[in-house]
Design a binder for these strands. Structure first.
Lengths: 139, 139
DNA sequence: CTAAGTGATATATATCTCTATATCACTAGG
DNA sequence: CCTAGTGATATAGAGATATATATCACTTAG
């Protein structure tokens, strides 16, 4: 888990951390039961205050992604939360709109966006460049 | 321009406004020279403080998207800013990562994401890009 | 000229975000 | 038992964000 934050980004620091962790869970780089870095350790790595990391962990715990055990550490939940379907779809469309708008503003067209999406897919899942026709996913 | 904001969203209010306006410019729903709602008017519509809208407009002006004229109003710039290529690509990949992660977390696969993207493309541009025989969505 | 609408500016207050620091409680390894 | 590492909690302060309110300057319509 290599996490990084940008203090001058659009999102607040703790939300940047939250997003990267949920993204890592989504992409399978963090699996149920995996241990996260302690909030102190991560705060040293990111050169930010421990409480900021703690806040990110607290929010993620409230959302059901991770659970903390006093004296032991913080772990990815065995059973991840299912989001409401309508909310989920609206969130996906929001993200899709954002991606396309950004691309259009840069002068790109839909095919170029699809290409980037496929590259990013390989990056996230760690799959080799070939888009295998079959798809043996577990989850 | 129908703008809306969510006070409990990830982004601060003024950044939500900024994003929706740049998205509208990108999608062609706002064109160079178009007049924006006055910050008072928009603040009434959104039920937020006028200064919050003002801040969004100020930032957008500093970025070169819009220009304000005292006593007259605020307008979309005739010549829109070009972003640095490396920054642009990184931003696109960030948005692509976000979209994919969200989809995976919801249990969707790449093909489903591509479908959503094409629907959103039609929504943004208003173009029936493809003479696809099936799937006439009307939102 | 007058009035209405616009942007520009200032003050004050409250909340959120981030930081720095310290202390306590629990767990695991030695 | 003792120590190191972990999470939990509390306080204080700085800066960003959002609000409410008021005033000024400029443009346009009448």
């Amino acid at each position: 888990m290599d996490i990084f934050v940008n203090p001058s980004g659009e999102l607040s620091l703790y939300r940047q951390i939250m997003r990267q962790i949920t993204d890592a869970i989504a992409g399978g780089r963090l699996k149920p039961g995996d241990k996260l870095a302690s909030h102190r350790e991560l705060s040293e790595h990111l050169v930010i205050a421990p409480l900021t990391v703690k806040k990110a962990y607290d929010e993620l715990e409230a959302l059901g992604y991770i659970e903390t055990q006093r004296g032991r550490g913080t772990f990815v939940c065995a059973r991840l939360p299912r989001t409401n379907r309508a909310d989920r779809d609206e969130q996906l469309r929001e993200n899709a709109r954002r991606l396309l708008s950004q691309a259009y503003l840069a002068g790109l067209q839909l095919p170029a966006v699809l290409k980037i999406l496929e590259e990013t897919d390989r990056e996230l899942t760690g799959n080799p460049t070939d888009p295998a026709p079959q798809d043996q996913k577990k989850r």
